[in-house]
């Protein structure tokens, strides 16, 4: 099978530059201006390598999410012992009265991305 498309008929991948600030916001990683610059260059470089994939004719190919085809690997609705709260909260950066304590939440659930 010829897996290559004729030149020029390929959807462009990396021509749109990666918006590092937007992506870092989504990923909740604070970046300095230097990092934005450095990562921007490095990631754009990596994306040019990834562009090679545009050469593959994949129109009629199915996507592989999992390489081993299994189905319906389920469990019965039966309880299993969990963890002691003391053990769990001992690892928490902050806790109070049996709860995890977290800094104030500004975003409304389902609103923030």
């Amino acid at each position: 099978m010829n897996t290559r498309l004729p030149h020029g008929s390929i959807p462009i991948l990396s021509s749109e530059k990666i918006d590092v600030r937007y992506v870092a916001k989504l990923a909740r990683i604070a970046l300095t201006d230097d990092e934005v610059e450095r990562f921007g260059t490095q990631l754009a470089d990596l994306l040019t390598h990834v562009d090679a994939l545009a050469q593959l004719d994949i129109a009629s190919v199915s996507a592989t999410a999992q390489v081993i085809e299994s189905r319906n690997v389920l469990r019965d609705d039966l309880p299993r012992p969990g963890l002691d709260r003391d053990v769990v909260l001992a690892q928490a950066p902050a806790s109070q009265g049996g709860f995890f304590r977290v800094p104030r939440i500004i975003a409304v659930k389902g609103e923030a991305s």
Partner: peptide
């Protein structure tokens, strides 16, 4: 100051550059 800033600063300080690169490119 708030939970979002806590996420951002924790992850900025906690992850090394290669991990950040991969998270960023994967998020993209």
């Amino acid at each position: 100051d708030d939970v979002t800033q806590t996420y951002e600063q924790t992850r900025a300080a906690g992850f090394g550059p290669e991990v950040k690169r991969r998270i960023l490119i994967g998020t993209h």
